[in-house]
Design a protein around this nucleic acid. Structure first.
Lengths: 226, 226
DNA sequence: GTCTATAGCTGGATAGAC
DNA sequence: GTCTATCCAGCTATAGAC
């Protein structure tokens, strides 16, 4: 199938540009130059720059998620989850997928296609993380007290935040990850407590937890496509 | 002092544009139109669009931090810190300061001035949060086990991540915050345990904590100003 | 599928009148 | 300090030859 290599080059270059220059530095000419491909081919193959980006991001996140799925599933403790997170943060920074997602979310305000691309990426990560978080919580005295769906989203949001933080203050980001790792080890340590102590803690916590009632959220704000 | 109102209008419009259209949708013409000010005045008063943005962001974050300082200092538990965080997230979303910071960090890859602006904003937030986190940790069995400086940065990164997440999936962001609140209540609950139990837990955790040794981080990557 | 060429536009930034 | 007018670089997108 001819043209496949061109498409691959373009997708690769689009993500690389997004990564290095950010959404604000993205342009069809720049991407084409980087891919060493004629600029008009972006529009021939994808129709528009943002459509190229959307497809590139989808393919890339699918790939990354597939590579990490196994590691997430293998995580048995919060420390291990955070270790996977750290590996993800450090290795995928080279591939740059988290940065891509961060830039997509940042650009989501501008264009509906970017918004859907960002949404798809986020959702893929969340649904990868979610079963792991649920499983880990189940092994913990916290089981049933913390909404695993929310926590999975918090973890994903955390990855994005740390990624952007890292772009601005790499040492600070490392400190942040290190402290989370400490926190994870603490949570993990509870699993080593005796059954009696655990039950006591559980009962105590449950007595103090106030029920969660949250007002519904008005969402919906987005501009039409350009 | 004449020209002051023009500057204020421009700063306000610059942040509003950043918030609503993102860094990728920012332009001098757009900002000027929004401020109802002649476009050339941006360059007369600030030299460049990014310089305007830098000053606007600095002024704005200083203002926001000042308003929240008190609430952070008043927080006595992790639940309260998270409640402050939620207020911050929801109220400052109206003012839009977190979004501004997120967009600045996203644009930091492109221009050195944006990078320093983002850095300054982040640093202001971190140094506001840090004493609170330290104080809260001190009231907890976790005292001394978790690096408060890292945790403060993790919290700041979390705010940014949730903000971006919110722009893409508002309900998911709410779930994330809710689960963190649950987690905070759990941590808080430990403070209600008897002194003996707490000491036992502390000893147990400390026995299981592995010492933190982290490889140094190679940072440094940034493009020169345009 | 790939190329050149170019239309048509928007952007940052400046010169110079007031 | 503020305005108009303008230069020119860079952009998306298309038309049409190969």
């Amino acid at each position: 199938m001819p043209g496949t290599e061109t498409r691959e080059r373009l997708q690769h270059a689009a993500l690389a540009t997004l990564r290095e220059d950010g959404i604000a530095g993205l342009s069809a000419r720049g991407v084409a130059r980087r891919a060493d491909v004629n600029q008009a081919l972006i529009f021939y193959h994808y129709g528009s720059l943002f459509d190229l980006l959307e497809q590139a991001a989808s393919a890339s996140v699918a790939d990354a998620v597939a590579r990490y799925q196994e590691q997430f599933e293998a995580a048995e403790t919060f420390s291990e989850l955070l270790a996977v997170g750290r590996r993800l943060h450090e290795q995928e920074r080279a591939a740059g997928n988290v940065a891509v997602m961060a830039q997509l979310t940042a650009g989501a305000h501008l264009d509906a296609r970017l918004a859907t691309a960002a949404q798809r990426c986020l959702h893929r990560w969340v649904e990868t993380i979610e079963p792991t978080v649920r499983r880990l919580l189940a092994h913990t005295p916290l089981d049933g007290m913390i909404d695993h769906r929310g926590l999975a989203r918090a973890v994903a949001a955390g990855f994005i935040g740390v990624e952007l933080f890292d772009g601005v203050d790499a040492d600070g980001a490392q400190q942040a990850l290190a402290s989370l790792e400490q926190l994870g080890q603490v949570l993990e340590a509870f699993n080593g407590l005796g059954a009696v102590t655990r039950r006591a803690i559980r009962a105590h916590i449950q007595r103090r937890l106030t029920p969660q009632t949250r007002p519904p959220r008005t969402s919906a704000r987005r501009k039409p496509s350009s």
